[in-house]
Nucleic acid binder design. Structure first.
Lengths: 238, 238
DNA sequence: CGCATACAATTTGTACACAATTTTTTTTTT
DNA sequence: AAAAAAAAAATTGTGTACAAATTGTATGCG
């Protein structure tokens, strides 16, 4: 066995995936072939193949003669996201409930344990990654090759959106996230019971929660300020 | 301008795409790097990048240390296909009706002209390709990055399924196809009228037609044969 | 000083050689 | 003659050198 090269390749893939999902590499960032090549001990040929692969999955954008960059996010994509997510995820969970194997259910429970652990003690990145893992497993459970490409594309930006908008300080958001965790438990139960309808309904509820999460961030409660006073340094600095 | 290499690359891509969609290269076929490399005047490096790109899009499957093959089709994929297609295509057409630009509508009309021409005089391959083009344009109209990956994946197998099951001799199937053409016209009208609901409804009708098409092939009307006689050479040969 | 052009440096794309792996053929053994 | 082992051939994967393109910088001119 002499597949060290394959391992380095996978390490690069995992590193990029993790970094992109957690926003450690920001959307729109340029990737430096030479730097990554040196860092991971891969020549540029296999490195570029990884780039192409990840471009196909939606992590990267490749521009001819102008290198690779992390795929962009904008408020347009945010809108598209919430348009597509409930439908796709509803379909995925419906099929997951119908098709999941016992082993997959165990894997899902494991992922949910990790997610809960991340909620208690982990960083935002851990939270986003373990949540991502949970949803990835539901995708595998559904096992429909035609739905998976869009679903996995959604999961990428789901992680990035949740990294963008989550602020652990905000009490409402903490409540929100523990509600999401409760949803996960209910999803597991619905899948185990092979209750496709309930699984689909939970998907919708789950995404509505997510949407509320972001609305709360984008359109917060206005500051209450008596008429006539003007916001000074204290407000801007605080 | 010295991008001959880029052109050769695109030619390879187009050749493979066309060959796969029309079943000129059968599902599961192995692709020979050396042969294609020679035929298209590309070294193996860019050739393999094209492979990876097309694997991401669903045309090819890449197996490490064992080369590329055209992605498989089975009756399982057929089932998955008809599970996913109406939903995705309904969503695409709904969004297409809402977002289509005038230029895109013109492009769609052009594609429909080509499709009609292919119905009259063209080969089965021309029919499948022009139909594919029509649907691809609706995907662009919708302009939702999260739905497109699955949609385009569906279109690949839509073309291949229609190549598999279409038999121009069968009268019912000819009727079926001209009904599909009528659907296209209605779809164009719905999009121009920005009637999202109607567009979505047409999508469902269109796929039900396609499904009937295949059911007819897979489960044909039984041969009527008096009890006691047995089918001879004449039946097998005709 | 602003702008255009030419040149240098960097980055990206391709070709080719060689290494690693799999597949086929030949040889050996029972 | 069938099965196993070894060798040869073919195929796939990676590293490196060089070609092509882009970006940045300096220089000249109005």
């Amino acid at each position: 066995m002499k597949d060290e090269a394959r391992q380095r390749r996978n390490r690069l893939y995992d590193h990029l995936k993790m970094s992109i999902l957690t926003l450690r590499i920001a959307p729109g960032s340029d990737l430096d072939e030479a730097e990554l090549s040196a860092a991971f001990g891969l020549s540029r040929t296999p490195l570029r193949e990884v780039f192409r692969e990840m471009a196909g999955e939606g992590y990267l954008d490749l521009r001819t003669n102008r290198g690779a960059r992390v795929s962009e996010m904008s408020y347009t994509t945010l809108r598209d996201f919430f348009l597509a997510a409930p439908m796709i995820y509803g379909a995925i969970l419906r099929l997951a409930a119908l098709n999941a194997t016992a082993a997959q259910v165990e894997a899902l429970k494991g992922a949910q344990d990790d997610f809960r652990a991340a909620l208690r003690s982990g960083s935002g990145a851990d939270r986003a990654l373990s949540n991502n893992r949970f949803h990835e497993i539901t995708g595998v459970m559904a096992g429909n090759v035609y739905l998976l490409p869009s679903f996995n594309r959604l999961l990428i930006d789901h992680a990035r959106i949740s990294m963008t908008f989550y602020r652990p300080g905000d009490t409402k958001m903490v409540e929100n996230v523990s509600e999401a965790s409760a949803h996960h438990d209910e999803i597991i139960a619905a899948i185990e019971a092979r209750d496709a309808e309930r699984a689909a309904a939970l998907a919708e509820a789950h995404w509505n929660l997510s949407r509320g999460h972001i609305e709360m961030f984008v359109m917060p409660d206005a500051l209450t300020m008596p008429l006539g006073t003007l916001p000074g340094q204290a407000v801007a600095g605080g």
